[in-house]
Amino acid sequence: MQSLRLLLMTQWLLLFLPICTASYILKDDYGNDERFFDKFDFFTEADPTRGYVSYVNRSTAKLTSLISASNGSVYLGVDNKNPAWGPGRRSVRLTSHQSYNHGLIILDLAHMPGTVCGTWPAFWMIGTVPPTAGEIDIIEGINEGPLNQVTLHTNQDGCIVKNSGFSGSLGRQNCYIYSTGPAGAGGCGIVDPYPESYGGIFNAVGGGVYATEWTSDVIRVWRFPRSKIPGNMQSGSPDPSTWGTPVASFSGSCNIDAQFNNLHLVFDITFCGDWAGGAWASSRLCAPKAPTCFEYVRNNPRAFEESYWRVNSLKVYQRT
């Protein structure tokens, strides 16, 4: 009888006690030493975006100081000492071994590639056979553009996102990679309105954190300056519901699970190519520097001294 009474009291109390469970738990910690590189493939094929770049393997990157790890951070850079030749300027493109379906990706950067003419850096997610599994561009920009653009690309038409729930500026609502509209062709992009979101100014204020939440209902991106990183993120118990309005949020008439699946994390720095090269002639700041993007990148190695990533940490969380 006593046991039955205790059981009933326990069940009654559970009805009124708050359920305290962590929203996200750590799945993958990429670290900030040489073992960081063990978790990535070094892409060495021709640039799919037709950039003026030569992606090198791990041993070459190490030998030529394009990668390193020291003082609690990882460095990923480009050749900034020699004129380019052959397929283009030497650089690295890393693709994670692990692929993901949903999650919370938190990237702490001490430095991202600066705003430099001819460059096209990105931190993004893509499937094994692009673009069939979709693409999420978290950090991306070209040339001396001062703002970050977050973009989704889908291989199927029908992903239409609503223009609300975020602080950035939406260029197009159709995320189809072959869509056209006022912002150019391909995908739905949201531009962060603040210069500290990207390049040289992001670096000048001490870097910060980009956090990307991917669920069946929404894909959202937040940016936090170093002084405003959420406490629950720093403690290892991130709770996006407490982070306020994201810079970018993609939801609406879009079957996210059908459009995005098995995506890998990618870091790269390419040069010229479809976007940066295509915008060269119309760039008020870059066009006067050389007749073409290729010529500028080939002949001005010192211009790319700020073209590097310095990663403090990269962590991927998943729901319990």
Rank of each mutant, 00 (worst) to 15 (best):
Y296T: 01
T60V: 13
I136M: 12
I126Y: 08
E140F: 13
V56K: 05
Q156H: 15
S164K: 15
P182R: 09
F202D: 01
F202T: 01
G31P: 06
S216D: 10
F294R: 14
T44F: 12
Q173F: 04
L26H: 08
Y52S: 05
T95S: 13
L8Q: 15
S249I: 04
S237N: 11
F304D: 07
I219H: 03
E135Q: 07
R284W: 09
N71T: 09
S251F: 10
V266P: 01
D41W: 14
T154E: 08
V78S: 00
I126G: 11
S54P: 02
A279C: 08
G134W: 00
G277Y: 04
G189Y: 02
G51A: 08
V56G: 03
F166G: 02
N148G: 11
I269M: 13
I25N: 10
C175W: 03
C293Y: 06
W243A: 11
D239R: 02
G165L: 06
V129D: 14
G168T: 05
T215P: 06
Y75K: 00
P83M: 05
P48E: 05
L170D: 06
N80Q: 14
Q156L: 10
T21E: 13
Y198P: 04
A110P: 10
L107V: 09
G277D: 04
L63G: 15
K162W: 08
D274E: 09
L170Q: 13
C188M: 06
P121Q: 02
N174S: 13
V209S: 05
D268M: 01
F294V: 11
T132A: 13
R302M: 09
P238C: 00
G145I: 07
H97K: 15
G186P: 11
R35K: 14
V266H: 05
F37K: 03
C272Y: 03
S99A: 14
A279P: 07
C175Y: 05
A303L: 01
S179Y: 01
P301Y: 01
N82I: 00
G141D: 03
R302H: 11
Y30A: 07
S73W: 09
P225W: 13
L104S: 11
E295K: 13
S197E: 08
T215H: 11
D79Y: 01
Y308V: 10
E196L: 05
F37M: 05
Q318C: 09
N261Q: 13
D33Y: 07
I139R: 09
A276T: 01
L6A: 12
T115E: 03
S241N: 14
L13C: 13
M125A: 06
L17I: 10
T21F: 07
G114N: 03
H264P: 12
V266S: 03
I138M: 15
V209T: 15
N148D: 14
S249H: 03
M233W: 02
G51L: 04
